[in-house]
Nucleic acid binder design. Structure first.
Lengths: 172, 172
DNA sequence: TCGTTTTATTTCACTGGTGAACTATGAACC
DNA sequence: GGTTCATAGTTCACCAGTGAAATAAAACGA
């Protein structure tokens, strides 16, 4: 598990150095973009590490928790794809894996026979309820030194960025 | 390219709903974690889309830009692994690809014959100088509506989070 | 109602990325 | 100087994720 700090130091040097030959480079924005990626990857690694003993990967677990978070505990592959930024192809694989583990069920929808209804099982709910709480302390630890306001600001800035991302694709 | 906004709405509902059965769930922190991932993935997709016509993937391009950002324009696979959060195995593949494209060279180091010196070529530099500038407008567009202060805050919060991540592995 | 188009999912072939074992060199110790 | 240990890369076998084509079931329009 590589430390981020050295990367970040080099990152600043790297961007500073690039500006010599590319003065129009928006340094702060570029730094944020790279930091987002670094932090995101690192958090994923941590999650995977926690899930490995249970033989689930992060996307399988994400799908399971999304189902857990649904009032009905059910959804369709298509919707789950949107909510988890996964392709349909991969969702098929994920569903196969979760069915095999007995964490979800898969049935043809009554209303629309093209659709599949994926539903979290009691075992699945139990699994989520067992897995999540031990993660809470670490999740909180990630934000030690953050004031309530800072966390809210962080949250707000990320949403703002998300909205800008949504409006990006129109122009190439 | 899926929109993020619907995901975020569902995300809030999802977390609210989870709190019913798991009241200790740190909602704001969990939301930030999921947002980070959503935004990170989406930005990556955008980068890949830009690189696709040039038959490079994001990690290959990242390695190239890191080399470009080095004062000497050279490094070793091991160091590049640390700086780009890539495994050594994949770095071998990336280097092969970049060598084949004539963007880097690979030589045994004189000082330590176990080491390989990877160096960006003139073609490689040219490629980076051609690729990056067209990305700047979009990068800036991502942050429209962000004040100078907000960008600095964003930057600062990400670094703070990175530092906390670095101090995490000690306790399991 | 029949043909066309659209939507939902799956299958297949491929790319990208990883862990474990292997090779080669260097460093440390005696 | 030879044995042992550590370090740097590579190779191999595998898992995860994607695009394009296939399948199957609506929906839509004469």
């Amino acid at each position: 598990m590589t430390k981020l700090n050295p990367c970040i130091l080099r990152l600043d040097e790297s961007i500073a150095h690039m500006q010599d030959s590319l003065p129009q480079l928006p340094a702060c924005e570029a730094a944020i973009a790279r930091l987002l990626k670094l932090v995101g990857v690192r958090m994923d690694e941590e999650l995977c590490r926690k899930l490995k003993p249970h033989k689930l990967n992060d996307s399988e677990f994400l799908v399971l928790t999304v189902l857990y978070g649904h009032p009905e505990g059910s959804s369709t592959p298509g919707v789950l794809c949107e909510l988890t930024s996964q392709g349909a192809t991969n969702m098929t694989r994920i569903a196969n894996a979760l069915v095999k583990r007995g964490l979800i069920t898969r049935h043809h929808s009554k209303e629309d026979r093209r659709s599949i209804t994926i539903r979290i099982t009691a075992t699945g709910r139990q699994f989520v309820r067992k897995m999540l709480p031990p993660m809470f302390p670490q999740l909180e630890e990630l934000f030690v030194g953050f004031s309530r306001t800072e966390k809210q600001t962080f949250n707000r800035l990320l949403r703002k960025l998300a909205i800008n991302l949504d409006h990006l694709d129109v122009d190439d």
